[in-house]
Nucleic acid binder design. Structure first.
Ligand SMILES: [Mn+2]
Ligand SMILES: [Mn+2]
Ligand SMILES: [Zn+2]
Ligand SMILES: [Zn+2]
Lengths: 125, 125
DNA sequence: ATATTATTGCAATTAAGTCGCAATAATTGA
DNA sequence: TCAATTATTGCGACTTAATTGCAATAATAT
């Protein structure tokens, strides 16, 4: 199933590229110019994840946030082992630069990393 | 509002104490002897969290898991800065011992830590 | 231009968790 | 021991996030 280029896909990608923080589904829904169906946005985001274009963060507010893969994609092995910070005041979710390495007990194989720290960011502090 | 002791509360606590992994709401619902309402279990767990008896983990399957506070309660400052591992095969969620310290950008204040790594555990490997 | 099929919109559905309210039962203390 | 107080429970309705089936639409290839 080869991907096709659609206006909505392009618009979502451009929003993610222009954002300085990870975006949730409803943020995108709100920011998109022409009205798009909710399900469509979910599907576009899921495709982006599958294609390694964005990574998904499940935050502690129970919502998924999506961020364009940038630094994480430039690893030798594309991994998303970095934390995200969610501000309880302004509700921005941002990637925290440094990759973290967790050493698991022997015999454990890591497949996915999901690290979120919530608190108050500097601009809301 | 002072807490009262009820059979269900005791049963949930004993299940958590006897478990070798964090438990989700539906696991508890299934394991409880006499049938208990879903909402009651949620409320008991939320009270345990408020009282610092258990800690809550939001895993990357979108469910909440609860683990008795043991090591985490013995810190000078009771904190839950440790990762949890969720096995994609047996779906057990367990606390990974070591406390991790994340250094946030200056001006950021951490309130809550939620770290989950999913993959395959040693017994399923 | 036509055929193929990925993508979309819409409505229905799933899943996790919360909430209001009346009934129940744990605690207190007379 | 009994009655009063009120935390807790059960039940149903509700909220929110996300997924899914299906027919219609539109991007791509020939
Ligand atoms: Mn990435
Ligand atoms: Mn704890
Ligand atoms: Zn903020
Ligand atoms: Zn396992």
């Amino acid at each position: 199933m080869k991907r096709r280029n659609t206006p909505t896909k392009a618009a979502v990608l451009s929003l993610l590229a222009g954002a300085d923080s990870a975006m949730s589904h409803d943020m995108l829904l709100e920011m998109l110019e022409d009205s798009v169906d909710r399900a469509t946005i979910y599907r576009i985001l899921n495709r982006f994840c599958a294609d390694g274009v964005v990574h998904r963060v499940l935050a502690d507010d129970g919502k998924q946030y999506f961020a364009l893969c940038e630094d994480c994609a430039q690893q030798t092995e594309h991994s998303h082992n970095h934390f995200h910070f969610r501000c309880l005041t302004c509700s921005r979710v941002e990637c925290l630069g440094t990759e973290v390495s967790v050493n698991l007990p022997s015999g454990y194989r890591a497949e996915n990393f999901n690290g979120v720290i919530s608190g108050v960011c500097s601009r809301c502090g």
